[in-house]
Design a binder for these strands. Structure first.
Lengths: 353, 353
DNA sequence: TAGAGCCTGGACAACGTTGTCAGATGCGCG
DNA sequence: CGCGCATCTGACAACGTTGTCCAGGCTCTA
């Protein structure tokens, strides 16, 4: 049949509607066990009021047919899905692994499953994902925002979808947010470099439209200003953090007559690339990175970082989400978790050249 | 005894049944727009046969009420959820990040969402998770097995749940499997060490009940045997791969009168710990690790590894899953992806001592 | 031995959506 | 002006489960 679908380009529309491969239902089980439908339901759900003998008969029928309760139908009836959604930027990013896992653990403790998807830093994809999750009636949503306007979630929140934003604040709506102290962490990290004698300090960060990136840049500027150091434009690089771009940025600020003697790297990806670039330099350049990276202590020198606790971010957010669902929470709040400066050598190098 | 739907200790049972916070339904939209229920359905799904004027009225009502289609009800009707489940070991493990992401991308391309959970290497939890996903009627399941008996999935597979196992084979059932060539990779890695003059080579791996661990051990033994080197018991450590245990194992094989001159590390976690231990040794010890690790090239010396392509594993598995759903696939198959030896220095060190 | 009360089991409606089908409407044409 | 046809619309059942409520059978007591 030529179905002329007008806007059938939405995800869920693309799978066709073949039935489950003929799965047994409670009705089938009931027929086989010679009992009523509701009795099967009672057995499946461990409700009281079934004689051991009847229960045994039902159980046998269940085993024989390979019955498994259809939670979709159950959800329709009960109104709760016991699942929460997580919209993050990139599952493959080592920063989000622990965060994701922490959210999952909390969900598990509350008997909920986790559905997650990556926005790939694309606001439109974030929205598409979040709304798809809402259509599935997740009980709650943990969002690591890619966009800066979340008014599209207003009807959902009003309808009772618990919502918590992590890592970056929500845009244009009032909602729970759990953040790291990006500003303070960056400021301290840069101040650390200044304390070790640096004055020409480079900053390589992500696009400033990303909240964390903007905050870290603000921290950098604050530390410099506190020390009375005027920042030169060419010390700063703000843009995509792919290796090619970062490498060029680093090499540029390390070239010329008065190169930077230290670099502050705005996130884990930047840090990794900068470490590579610095390894190729003839003179030592100090480095402090935002986000911890694995094996940072084993490099020569060890990489000094401003570490944030990704797991704590996820855990805190998820716990807050379930407290929203409990009804114990009313007022949206902004929670800021502290960062920690871990000195390993690279940030304590004195200025060279 | 076949495990079945039983008692009320299952996750989904713990959330109580409060209704959605009074969400508008198609009926409400229909009432407000002054049209029939089915017409709303048509508009929502972009079906043909609605005049522009009617469509506009319906659309306005949708916007005004903040209506969002309830996919649970839709699923109940259509029989497909457009979602697939992924059961893995630990979301936070850097090896599974890219794998997970790859599965997600394929799912996305097919318009499906991804629900995932961590088994924490616990067979019971694996089963609980997989069955919970089936109860939600995921269309398919990608499983990284923790246990070695998957007969509990037989009714599900028979009922049409597409199933693919990744990284490790299924136990006691016939199903699609996508693996790395663990045996060949380990054998080549160890042979590489032997080629560089080593004879006393240690092996530190995971519990042999884990298929990958067993295969890699087999590869180690094969390489040693091919070279005519009798393996001493104390060169091998097979057990949990927590840092404490691995550290002790490494230190033990490096002590005594005839210590190993090289170590083959059975997975990424082991490699990381061994690198730490070796950094403390006075004499150089060669190292080849299974799985690539970030920044391996920047360590002194760079860490030689047998790399597997986690993303390719995930992608291949997910694609196979959707081909099962298409009906293009019939016979279960075992697909083995090659590994790649990446030399960076640590594996090319000559024997010392 | 009759009545009260408890326990078990089942009929039925409802959850929100989609597929089916038939009715209503409008249009062109004889 | 009426008929056929195409187009648009809506009533209704069904998806598989759970909550409500009542019937029937049993035990227990007076």
């Amino acid at each position: 049949m030529p179905e002329t679908t007008r806007r059938a380009d939405r995800p869920a529309d693309r799978l066709s509607g073949t039935r489950y491969g003929n799965r047994p239902t409670m009705k089938d089980v009931a027929a086989r066990a010679g009992v009523g439908l509701k009795t099967v339901s009672r057995v499946v759900n461990g409700e009281p009021g079934v004689t051991p003998d009847t229960e045994r008969r039902v159980q046998e029928a269940i085993d024989a047919l390979g019955f498994r309760r259809n939670d979709s139908a159950r959800v329709l009836r009960k109104g709760r899905t016991a699942s929460i959604g997580l919209v993050l930027e990139d599952l493959a990013d080592p920063f989000y692994g622990p965060l994701s896992r922490a959210v999952e653990e909390v969900a598990r403790a509350h008997g909920a499953l986790l559905i997650n998807g990556s926005s790939a830093e694309d606001p439109e994809r974030e929205q598409e994902l979040a709304l798809a999750l809402c259509a599935r009636r997740v009980d709650g949503l943990v969002v690591i925002p890619a966009g800066d306007d979340h008014r599209y979630l207003e009807p959902e929140i009003r309808a009772g979808v618990a919502t918590v934003f992590v890592d970056r604040p929500a845009g244009k709506i009032d909602a729970d947010v759990v953040l790291s102290d990006n500003y303070g962490g960056a400021r301290d990290g840069v101040a650390h470099l200044i304390a070790h004698g640096h004055r020409r300090i480079g900053f390589i960060g992500d696009m400033p439209r990303i909240h964390t990136a903007a905050e870290r840049l603000r921290g950098y500027r604050a530390a410099m200003e506190d020390a009375g150091i005027p920042v030169e434009e060419r010390w700063m690089s703000l843009g995509a953090t792919d290796p090619v771009r970062v490498r060029r940025a680093a090499e540029e600020m390390l070239a010329g007559p008065s190169p930077v003697t230290a670099i502050f790297a705005g996130n884990n990806r930047v840090t990794v690339t900068v470490v590579r670039v610095l390894a190729e330099q003839s003179r030592p350049v100090a480095l402090v990175g935002f986000d911890d990276i694995e094996l940072a202590d084993l490099l020569q020198p060890g990489v000094t970082v401003v570490a944030q606790d990704a797991a704590a971010l996820g855990r805190t957010a998820a716990e807050r989400l379930f407290r929203q669902l409990d009804g114990t929470l009313v007022q949206p709040e902004r929670i800021e978790l502290p960062t920690r400066l871990i000195t390993r050598g690279s940030g304590e190098l004195p200025p060279a050249g």
